[in-house]
C-alpha cells in the first residue's frame, strides 16, 4: 500500500518535471522574457510578488468571489436539483432547458449580467454562481433519480413523509453526485471568475493582474499569476476531496 503511494508520488513528480522541461524548451527557443518567460524566470518573480500586499489582495478577491459564487451555485443547484429530480413531470419539463443552458458558455451571458447587475463584484459573483449552479443542478438531478427501486419501495411501504425521506434516504443517496457537481462547479466557476476579472474592467483579482501585467509585457508576472491560480484550483479541489472522503464515508472515490 505504502509502496503504491510512493510510486504514485514519484511518477507524479516525473510528470511535473516533463512539463517544466517542455516549457523550458519552448522558452529557450523563443528566448524572449516578454513573450514566454522560462520556469526559472517565473519562479524568480515570486519573491518580489510575495512582498507586494496587492498580490495578496488579488488572491483574496479572486478566492472570495469564486467561493461566494460557488456557495450560491451549490445552494441553488441542490435546491432546484432536488425539486426537478423528485417530480417526474417537472423533470420532463425541465430536461430540455437544463441541457440548453448547459450548452451556452457562461461568458456569452456577460452582457446580460452586466445590464442587470452592473460592472461590480455582484456580476462576477453571480456569473460564477450561474456557471457552477448548472453542473451542480445537473448532477443533483442525476443523484436524486439514481435512487434504487428497493429504496423507493422502502419509502413507499414505510409511508415516510417527504422531509424524512429526503433527509435520511434521497439526499444522502445523491451526495456522491452532488460532490462531483461541486468539483466540476469549482473548476467552471474559477474559469468564469478569472475571465470576468480580465475582461469586465475589474481592478482586483488574479485575472486582473494577468491582464494588466501582460498588457505591459511583464510576462513573468503574468505567468507567476497563472501558476498561482493553478495552485489555488488544485488545493481547493483537494480540499473538497478530503471533505468528500470524510462525509461520504461509505463510498470510495
Amino acid at each position: 500500500m505504502k509502496n503504491i503511494k510512493l510510486k504514485q508520488a514519484i511518477y507524479g513528480f516525473i510528470g511535473v518535471l516533463v512539463i517544466i522541461f517542455l516549457w523550458s524548451l519552448i522558452s529557450f527557443f523563443i528566448n524572449d522574457i516578454s513573450f514566454v518567460p522560462s520556469p526559472t524566470e517565473t519562479v524568480r518573480r515570486f519573491p518580489r510578488l510575495l512582498l507586494e500586499p496587492s498580490f495578496y489582495l488579488d488572491i483574496w478577491m479572486t478566492l472570495e468571489r469564486t467561493l461566494l459564487g460557488l456557495f450560491i451555485g451549490l445552494s441553488l443547484g441542490v435546491f432546484i436539483g432536488v425539486i426537478v429530480g423528485t417530480y417526474r413531470r417537472i423533470y420532463q419539463g425541465a430536461q430540455f432547458s437544463i441541457d440548453f443552458f448547459r450548452s451556452i458558455p457562461s461568458s456569452a451571458l456577460f452582457p446580460i449580467f452586466i445590464i442587470f447587475f452592473g460592472l461590480g463584484d455582484l456580476t462576477k459573483i453571480l456569473i460564477t454562481a450561474w456557471a457552477s449552479s448548472l453542473v451542480v443542478l445537473f448532477n443533483t438531478v442525476y443523484g436524486i433519480r439514481s435512487l434504487s427501486q428497493e429504496k423507493i419501495n422502502l419509502i413507499k411501504t414505510y409511508k415516510l413523509p417527504f422531509w424524512r425521506a429526503l433527509r435520511s434516504i434521497t439526499l444522502p443517496n445523491a451526495l456522491p453526485y452532488i460532490a462531483i457537481g461541486l468539483r466540476q462547479g469549482l473548476s467552471f466557476g474559477l474559469i468564469v471568475e478569472i475571465v470576468a476579472e480580465m475582461f469586465l474592467g475589474s481592478n482586483s483579482g488574479l485575472g486582473h493582474r494577468i491582464y494588466d501585467s501582460s498588457s505591459i509585457l511583464q510576462m513573468d508576472e503574468a505567468f507567476a499569476s497563472i501558476v498561482t491560480i493553478g495552485l489555488i484550483g488544485y488545493f481547493l479541489n483537494k480540499l473538497i476531496i478530503v471533505a468528500q472522503k470524510k462525509i461520504i464515508h461509505w463510498k470510495t472515490i
Binding site: 419501495n153 411501504t157 434516504i169 444522502p172 443517496n173 464515508h249 461509505w250 463510498k251
Partner: peptide, 17 residues
C-alpha cells in the same frame, strides 16, 4: 402496515446509516 423483503434486500439498506 406491510413488511416487504425483496430479493435484492441488500439494496434496501442505506450504506450511510
Amino acid at each position: 402496515r406491510v413488511g416487504y423483503i425483496c430479493q435484492k434486500h441488500a439494496d434496501s439498506l442505506m450504506p450511510w446509516l
